[in-house]
Every structure is written in structure tokens, then in C-alpha cells.
Design a binder for these strands. Structure first.
Lengths: 197, 197, 197, 197
DNA sequence: GATGAATGAGATTTCATTCAT
DNA sequence: AATGAATGAAATCTCATTCAT
């Protein structure tokens, strides 16, 4: 167990270093040597833990996105009113900025790029679809007005959240703790009022 | 004149090809050969029209964004009600999908990467700021409720538009001519109702 | 055509350079840079003509071995007495040493090594099988004594030829023009007398 | 003593593993990790028993070849008829397949590669020369016909043996115990009849 | 203008060897 | 003795850019 832990620690160190470096320069502009330097190890070591630079990004993606997929499922199954669902989703999505800003940065900027886009798109789609289903269910409950395409609305909501993250990533929007809560409120208010029957 | 035209045609062909390729794979992952192949010419030819791959992106940015900046200015100065302003802005922005499907999306996605970020960010900011000012003015006219940060709202609106473009580019959302008009309506409806006093 | 020729010339230049370098140092110890230097070009150019270093070896193998396979077929179909068939086979096999000593060197030393062994083995087997069939047919014609496994005999003959090539490759046996003819005579005499009924 | 034995056992395990791996892929393409995996130990352990990968090959060579050199000397000095000498030599050489299937083949295949070629070639030459001298002596005794270059004949015989070993190693020829005896008989029959006066 | 062969800086990747545990 | 993480020299390979034709 002790040995496994040490191994896992190194993996983490490398992944964290990678997310910082990718966040700073983007995946393609980041050299393997940069990641190693950031982690304080020789570049060769990265190949002990990952098959390639691509696999590092892939791992980062799965880790970060995987937990979002799970959380989204739980929110959908809760069956609470749409406003509450939107608040919880927004809080998790925007809140991740405070928890792991670099991972989010990478996610936001590298999705749809680099090899393996196809496979990832499916996992991304899963979140969109869940969001769309929540809106559709709310529509059937009469919470959302009828003249509204649920999937399109899902894209609107998701786009709003992603853009705010981008603003934080690019340093164009203040992204301190209190700003995050305000952003959640704004998105939820606008989206809910905008969709309300 | 005829010669100039042919020259201009080739430039356009290359720029359009570049915007499609950049949109698909991102700037760094796109090889000069990919752009040339997409344009149906030899890769060496690109260097007759542009000094470098960077200059292609730079040119794309100036051309596409420049006109958006002008259009946005005009919309702001028109002083019409917010709903009308949002509709015009959305139409221009999403309409770019029909005219030049990839250009705008590329630009936003590539900001923060590649050289010369600073200057470009300012120009992008200009559009955001104009959008924010429109919302703020509407707020002062009583069209928008008071408990709403205009700039944050601008990011929300912009994000919705951006995400829909992304959906079209990635083939995740239907993007035919009638879909564009519906998308404009949805965004304007949601945004306006969501912001209304 | 002129262009094709120039392209083909370069390919040849590179293949010839590669066969010299592989012959001198063996495939694995040869660096791509060595081949390029031998050919008098930049190392990058090799990747214009071949996908990888492996593909260069593969091509070399197919070229050299391919013609031997064809020649062997022709000899088998000729149906002449075994002695004559052995003479022709030996002449082609050992004679190739004078024509393209480096290719032969590579063939002898790299077969069964490096990636793609499996696929090559089949093509090598084809020659062995043909040789075995020739001996078997001669046995049925009464030219070869009955207490002799044709396939084993084929391996013996082939081994004798290959070892002589190896001797030349390693500089342990004199390999001038007259030595080649003497070697052919020796192998044919020993093999034929050894197998005769 | 017990400790030494265990130490010796490990050395042997590693050497045997190395000879199998080298035989399969060649010295250069064999990684230290492959040898260790074949031996079922961690790759670091190899460096307790050998200074380097080169030293493994070197050791393999000295051990295997050394005993063959001694045996060959004894056969030469025995002064028995050529047929008997050939049988004994073939039995030892091909018999090595049952004892240590890969060692000898590795050595011959790897000569000319890797450092220290010079010294080894001399030792290999010694065996060839002894074989040649036996044939020459037989020629002078009238057992072998006059129009035959003894050294060339030695290469022929050696090549036949070598090729059969190769066939066994590559799984192209059946190599069970009874096949070995049959192979010895075939080579001796062919060689003796082929050389006989 | 147009082509694509040619270049070479610089990236990724491999792997023999060392060494702390 | 034994392990396998860690190192880094050296290899392979990529691709923006140049340039002869």
C-alpha cells in the first residue's frame, strides 16, 4: 500500500504539473520537458507513468470530466424543480474553478482539439443531453414555456457557464470566491426567468 | 484588375480553408499542409500570400473581427430597445455561421494562444464591453432589472451564442438556415425574458 | 516523367545509402542521420520518401528478396535436371553478392530481426519450399536417393549458400568474381553428389 | 556454497533468458527489460550479475563457444575417418539445440555487430579452421576428392548445420529429439557422399 | 504564380544504467 | 539480493519555412 501510494503520488504530481503547464500554454505548445520541469523530475519519468503526452491529456480529461458526469446524473435523478437543478449544476460547474482552476482551464481550452476528440465528444454530449432532459422534464411539468426547444436551451445554459469560465481563464472576468457565487446566481436567474412559463 | 482579383481569390480561398482547418483542430494542431490541402493548392503557395502560419491567423482575426466590431458599434449607437439590439447582434453573430461558418469560432478559441494575444484581447474586449454597455443602458432605461451585473450578463449572452456556434461546427446541433433563425429567437427570448425587469 | 524519375532517383539514392549503412553497422545500430549523411541529404528528407526507418528496411527486403522469389519460381518450372536447377539457383543466390553486396549483407544479417519478421518469414519460406519441391521431384524421377528427406536437404543446401554469403559478408572468405564461380561449383558438386541416388 | 549456488543459478537463469531473447529479436533489438521479464526478475537485478548488456552477450559467447572450441579440438586430434569426425561434430553442434536451443545461433548471428567483434571472430575462425583441417587431412588420406577446396567445404558443412538450427529456432523445421538424430544423419550423409573421392 | 523537394530546429520517445529503498 | 523508480543521452520523427525549377 505504501508503495502504491508513492506511485500514485508521483502520478498525481505529474498530472497536476501537466494541468498547470497546459493551462498556461495550451496542450500543443507545452513540451513534455516543461511538464517534467514543473513536476521537478526528469522528462523520461513521465513515460513511466503515461504512454505518451496525449495520454496525459486524456487522463486529465477523464478525471475532471468524469466526476462532472456523475454529478450531473445525480442532479437529474433528484427530480427537484428546474431552478434548483440549474443552481446545483452551475455551482458544481463554476465551483470547479475554485477547486481546480488549471484543470478547468485545460478542459475549456483543449476540448475538441488534439487527438481523440471523437471519443470525448460522446462523454461531453452526455452532460448536454442530461441538461436537455432536465429542461424537457420541467417543460412537461409546466415549469418551462412550451415554445422552447429543450436541447437548444441546454446549449444556451451550458454556453453561458462555459463562457464565464473562459472569462476567468483569460483573466477577463474577476474570478474570486464571491464572484463565483454571484455568477451562479446570475446564470440561474437569467436562465430560469428566461425559460419560465 | 483581373490579376489582382485572381490574387485576392486565392487569398480568400486560403483564408477560408484556414478557418475551417483551425476550427476543426485548433491553430497549433493544424499543419500548413492541412490548410493547403483544404484549399487544394501546394503548401508552398501559402507563403506567397502570407509571411507565416501566424500571419494567417492574424489576418483571419482582423478581417472577421474587425467587421463584427464595426457592426456592434452601429448597434450600440442605434439606441433601439435592448430586445431589438440583442436580436441584431445575435443575427450577425450566428449568421456568420452561414457566411463563414468557422471564422468567429476559431478566433475565440484561439485567443490566449499564439503570439500577440495582448492586442487581440483588447479588440475582443471591445465587443464584450459594447454588449455590456447596451445592457447597462437598458438597465438605466428600466428595461432590465436592477439586481443584475451588466458585464456578467454580457458574458452569459455571448456564451450562449458562442456555444451554439460550437455545436454547429462540431455537428452536434442542426445548423441549417431555418435553425439559425430559431436559434436567434431562442437566445433573444431567453436572454430578454431572463434579464427583463 | 522527368519529375517521377527525379523522385525515383532520390528514393534509390536513399535506399542504396541505407543498404550500405545497414550493411556496415546493422539495422539497429544505424541511425537515420547516418543514412541521410551517406546519401548526402538532410535527415528530414528520408521521411519524404519513407514513413519510417522500418519502412526503409522493409522496402529493401522486398526489393531484394522479391526478385529471388521470381527467379526461383522460374527455375522450378523449368523442370531441368536437379543438378542444373541447383546450379542456376546457386548462381543467382551467390551471384547477387557481386551485383549488390550491401543488400545481400543486410538480407543475411537482418532477416528474422526487427519488426515485421512474421510477414517476411512467409516470403522466405516460399523459396525454401520451392527448393524442397525441386529436390522431391528429382527424387521421384530417381535422381536423388530415397532415404533423404527433401525439405531437410533443402535446408542443407540453402544453409551452405547462406553461410558462404556470410563468409563473404564478414570478410572471412575471399569473395572476388572467380571465387563466386568456384563456390557455386563446390556447392553444386557437394550437394548433387551428396544427394545422388 | 549454497549461496554461491543460488548466485550461480540466477546467473544461469539470466544467461538462458538472454540467449532466448537474443535469438528471437537479435541483440540490439532486445531490451534489458525483455531479458529480465523472460527470466522472471526485475531488470535492475541483471546489473548485479553483469556489468552491462554487452557483458551478457560476451559471457554467452565465451561460455558456449569455449566448450565447442575444446570439443572440436578433441575431434580433430582423434584422427578418426572424416565421416566419424563429421558425425561427432554435427552431433555436438546440433545437439546444442536440445541442451541450449538458442545460444549458438545467437552467437553466429550476432558476430559482426556489437563491440569486440575482432577477438570473437578469431575464436569462431578457430572452429572453421579446425573443420577445414579435418577435411584437408581426409583429402590427403584420399578420403575426399582432390578438386575440392577444403575451407570452402568447411563453410558448406557449417552452413548446413547452422541453417538447420535456425529452422528449429524459428519453428520452421520440426525439432524434436528424433529429428535431431535424423538431421545429423542427413548432413553427414550428404556431406560425406558429396565430398567423397 | 505555383509546385513540392529539401532543410533543420526542435519536439517526442526509448532505454541502458543508476540508485534509494 | 532484489526491486523498480528515476535519470538523461541519444534516437526517431514532425513540420514550418525556404527555394530551385
Amino acid at each position: 500500500m505504501a508503495v502504491v501510494d508513492r506511485t500514485e503520488d508521483r502520478r498525481r504530481t505529474l498530472l497536476d504539473a501537466a494541468s498547470r503547464v497546459f493551462a498556461r500554454k495550451g496542450f500543443h505548445a507545452s513540451r513534455v520537458g516543461d511538464i517534467a520541469e514543473e513536476a521537478g523530475v526528469a522528462h523520461g519519468l513521465l513515460y513511466h507513468y503515461f504512454r505518451s503526452k496525449d495520454e496525459v491529456l486524456e487522463t486529465l480529461f477523464r478525471e475532471t470530466w468524469g466526476s462532472l458526469v456523475l454529478d450531473t446524473q445525480r442532479i437529474e435523478e433528484s427530480g427537484t424543480p428546474l431552478r434548483e437543478q440549474l443552481r446545483r449544476f452551475s455551482r458544481i460547474y463554476l465551483g470547479s474553478w475554485l477547486v481546480a482552476p488549471d484543470s478547468i482551464r485545460v478542459l475549456v481550452r483543449e476540448i475538441g482539439r488534439s487527438p481523440g476528440v471523437g471519443e470525448r465528444l460522446d462523454e461531453i454530449k452526455a452532460v448536454f443531453l442530461a441538461l436537455g432532459r432536465m429542461i424537457e422534464a420541467a417543460q412537461q411539468r409546466g415549469e418551462v414555456r412550451a415554445d422552447c426547444e429543450p436541447m437548444l436551451a441546454a446549449w444556451v445554459v451550458y454556453g453561458a457557464l462555459e463562457e464565464i469560465l473562459t472569462g476567468w481563464v483569460l483573466g477577463q472576468l474577476p474570478g474570486e470566491e464571491e464572484d463565483v457565487e454571484r455568477a451562479v446566481a446570475t446564470v440561474v436567474d437569467v436562465a430560469h426567468a428566461g425559460l419560465a412559463a
